[in-house]
């Protein structure tokens, strides 16, 4: 028998990295020599995801305790939302067993810090999470819900097509909810 302990292979961490890279591209520090991932919310999230991918793990014990709290850079909501929506889609909805050191949770925490007044203690369910975002900022909650729906619909395209998925290389249905480019044919 083969198998794996809960690992990074269970979720699409690459899909979470791509919208973070898009945020970096628009950052003033990008390619300036001033980029310091350890002190930047987006940099920390990206590096955490890459570390998890490299190690093949989903939980980085202690990682949530190292999230930089002093990043005061300005972030645009429209840039953050696609990344935040992807964390919602990748979340396994562990409910009572939610771990703050899960790399999805770490990423979400970093992203929240850029556009929300305070972090949300993740309730372990997407539905409840959106309700809590709405309590803080109804407008962000609405945009986020719209983005999640849009991404889900893109994923559905894959399930309705025949042949092989171009993004994942898997046979139809590949089961992924793709995020960056829509499926233009199989």
């Amino acid at each position: 028998m083969t198998g794996t302990i809960r690992s990074s292979a269970m979720v699409d961490l690459d899909a979470m990295l791509k919208p973070l890279q898009n945020i970096c591209i628009e950052c003033d520090h990008f390619h300036s020599g001033d980029c310091k991932p350890a002190t930047c919310m987006i940099g920390f999230a990206s590096r955490s995801l890459k570390f998890a991918l490299q190690k093949g793990i989903l939980d980085i014990p202690g990682a949530s305790g190292h999230i930089p709290r002093s990043d005061m850079k300005h972030y645009f909501v429209e840039n953050i939302i696609p990344a935040l929506a992807e964390t919602c889609l990748q979340c396994r909805e562990c409910r009572d067993s939610h771990s703050p050191d899960c790399v999805i949770s770490v990423t979400r925490f970093c992203l929240e810090n850029t556009i929300l007044e305070k972090n949300i203690e993740y309730p372990g369910s997407l539905f409840m999470y959106l309700a809590m975002v709405k309590e803080q900022d109804p407008e962000i909650a609405q945009i986020l819900a719209g983005e999640i729906k849009r991404k889900k619909n893109k994923g559905r395209e894959c399930l309705e097509s025949n042949g092989h998925c171009k993004e994942s290389g898997r046979a139809w249905p590949c089961g992924y909810t793709h995020t960056i480019t829509p499926h233009t044919g199989h």
Partner: peptide, 19 residues
Amino acid sequence: RNEQLDDEFLAFISKEGEA
């Protein structure tokens, strides 16, 4: 074991260069 992993994680996060 995770003290070692933590050190490794912090070193990885703090590496110079783009995120």
